[in-house]
C-alpha cells in the first residue's frame, strides 16, 4: 500500500511541474484541475488505509469544492480576458 501512495505522489508531481514551467494561465488551470482531483483521491486512499472516516468525508467534500472553485475561477478568468 505504501508503494501505491508513492506512485500517486509521483503522478502528482507531474502537474505541479507543469504548473511551474508553463506561463499560459489555461495550462496552469488544467494542472490545477488535475492536482485537485489527485489530492482528494489520495486523501480517500489514506482514509481507507487508516480506517479513519472523518478524513474520508473531508476528501469527498474537497473533491466537489475543488471542482466548484475551479469552475468559478475559469469563468472569472474568462471575463478578465474579455474586458
Amino acid at each position: 500500500m505504501d508503494s501505491i501512495l508513492i506512485a500517486m505522489i509521483l503522478a502528482l508531481l507531474i502537474p505541479i511541474y507543469e504548473a511551474w514551467q508553463d506561463d499560459d494561465i489555461w495550462q496552469k488551470m488544467l494542472a490545477f484541475a488535475s492536482i485537485a482531483t489527485k489530492t482528494s483521491i489520495m486523501m480517500l486512499v489514506i482514509s481507507v488505509l487508516r480506517d479513519d472516516w472523518s478524513i474520508g468525508v473531508v476528501a469527498v467534500i474537497t473533491l466537489s469544492v475543488g471542482e466548484a472553485g475551479l469552475m468559478l475561477l475559469a469563468h472569472l478568468i474568462k471575463r478578465l480576458n474579455e474586458a
Partner: peptide, 28 residues
Amino acid sequence: SLLVLAIMTLAIWNTVLGYVLAYCSSSN
C-alpha cells in the same frame, strides 16, 4: 455510501468541468 458518493461526484463534476474549461478557454 461515501465511496459511491465519491464516484458519482467524480463522474458528474469532472464531465461538467471539462465542458466549462473548454468553453472558457476556447472563447478566449
